[in-house]
Amino acid sequence: MSDAISALSGAHATGYVTVTEAGLRGMITLRGDLGATKLKAAVKKLIGADVPLVRQNTVNADRGVAWMSPDELLLMVPHAEAESCVAALAKALTGTHHLVANVSDARAVFRVEGAAVREVLAKISPADLSPAGFAPGQVCRTRLAQVAGAFWLTDDETAEVVCFRSVAAYVFGLLEHSSRTGSEVEYS
């Protein structure tokens, strides 16, 4: 098998925050009844965390689970383990109405770091990025200028941004432009 490479080979930009393509990440879409006992147990076993509440995001070392919609979760695992995790989930959920798919190579991930991370995201998204409206531990599915995307804060100065791989260059451009030195809004 050929080696997997991420969309932008670790592209990096430094403005008044830094933007870095975070490399390969195992991502699994899981859809089904999020209250079902079997599904809850399968998520717990794979990620080591409970099914998150509405719009919550749990990170557990190199794994994580994010609430994407009332019947959809995004599971994150090391990239090399995604296929085997999908197989394990499919096995665990046999007989339960569900959908599980490895979407790792359909996505790109960026890390945005700096004190102004909220402002940089607020420039390209209609989401509420005030500390009262959005905090670490939450996930936000929204619009990044012209395309769909999602992000969460791992701490008050670090965000991870996810988009489709096909628009990775566009989203990197957005983030790079939004964080360009001299374009500070200094909104607080």
Partner: peptide, 11 residues
């Protein structure tokens, strides 16, 4: 009502 977000028209 499905996710609780005050969604902007453009979303």
């Amino acid at each position: 009502p499905c996710c609780g977000v005050d969604a902007d028209e453009t979303e």
